[in-house]
Simulated scan of single mutants.
Amino acid sequence: MSGVVIVIPARFASTRYPGKPLVELRGATGEARSLIRRSWDAAMEVAGIDRVIVATDDERIAAHAHDFGADVAMTSTSCRNGTERCAEAVENLGLSADIVVNLQGDAPLTPAWFIEDLVAGLRADATAGVATPVLPTSGAMRQDLIADRHAGRVGGTTAVFAADMGALYFSKEVIPFAAGSFDPAEPSPVFHHVGVYAYRPDALKAYPTWAEGPLERLEGLEQLRFLENGRRVLCVRVEARGRQFWELNNPEDVPRLERMMADMSIS
């Protein structure tokens, strides 16, 4: 097949939050749905997608995904991150998609237009084999990121990029450093990296052949492997359009996401 495929990599044995894909989140109406189900629901809202696949190495996740009607690809336990799991799923299924999107299963509040804009951005830039969204932050969101780090929690990831939108670096620290504070409602200089990737087939196929680099190992950020191997990563700026966005990285994020879903009337 050709076109665009979304793969949602999900593993049970998360270091920071074991069993995270099966954690339930309650929406505005009180209905509880698992994190992986909500990520699937988000993927199904994206326009122009030909197929959505949950890729996992865990039978519990696979059985649950089958129960709500998902297309599932089983992968090995040797995959070190979501990009490797996406690459293995594509190879195992024999897919020939023009673009593969990695929608990581911990970002159920990802709006459809983030992915639609991401795919459009990669299609428009022939120099990049991989693209990822970056979201401008308000002073309040920047402060939330800083608060997580001060509390010793590994929270959201931030990104810095060049004038041509090529990524310079990604970090779990809040970068760039800026002295002083910013009005909570006003823009800040920090961009939140949204954990979604769009790959061209050659870039995705090459990725598992490279060794994990020192920066990837230190930060625990899979996208740094592309930069460490001299590959251009395109940052695509996306806009919140009034939507709140956060990822589920730690147990403490569950009530935060549930409050956001209530605020946005997401059932």
Rank of each mutant, 00 (worst) to 15 (best):
M1E: 03
G3R: 14
I6S: 10
I8G: 05
A10M: 11
R16F: 10
P18K: 07
K20E: 04
P21D: 03
E24C: 05
E24Y: 09
G27L: 12
G30M: 14
E31P: 00
R33N: 15
L35N: 11
R37Q: 13
R37Y: 07
S39C: 15
D41K: 15
D41R: 15
I49T: 06
R51L: 14
I53L: 07
E59A: 08
G69N: 03
T83R: 01
E84C: 01
A87I: 03
E88C: 07
L93P: 15
A97M: 14
G105N: 15
G105E: 15
L109D: 07
V119S: 11
L122I: 09
L122K: 04
R123C: 12
R123Q: 12
A131M: 05
P133H: 07
V134E: 00
G139E: 05
A140Q: 09
Q143V: 02
I146V: 10
A147S: 06
D148K: 05
H150M: 10
G152F: 09
R153N: 04
G155W: 09
T157P: 03
T158P: 07
V160T: 11
G166Q: 04
A167Y: 01
Y169E: 14
Y169P: 05
F170V: 04
E173H: 01
A179M: 10
A179Q: 09
D183N: 04
P187T: 08
S188L: 02
A198V: 11
A198E: 06
P201T: 09
D202Y: 12
K205D: 13
A206Q: 09
P208A: 05
L221M: 13
Q223C: 12
R225Q: 07
V238T: 11
G242Q: 01
E252Q: 09
D253L: 01
V254Y: 11
P255S: 10
E258V: 00
M260F: 15
M260Q: 12
A262P: 05
D263R: 10
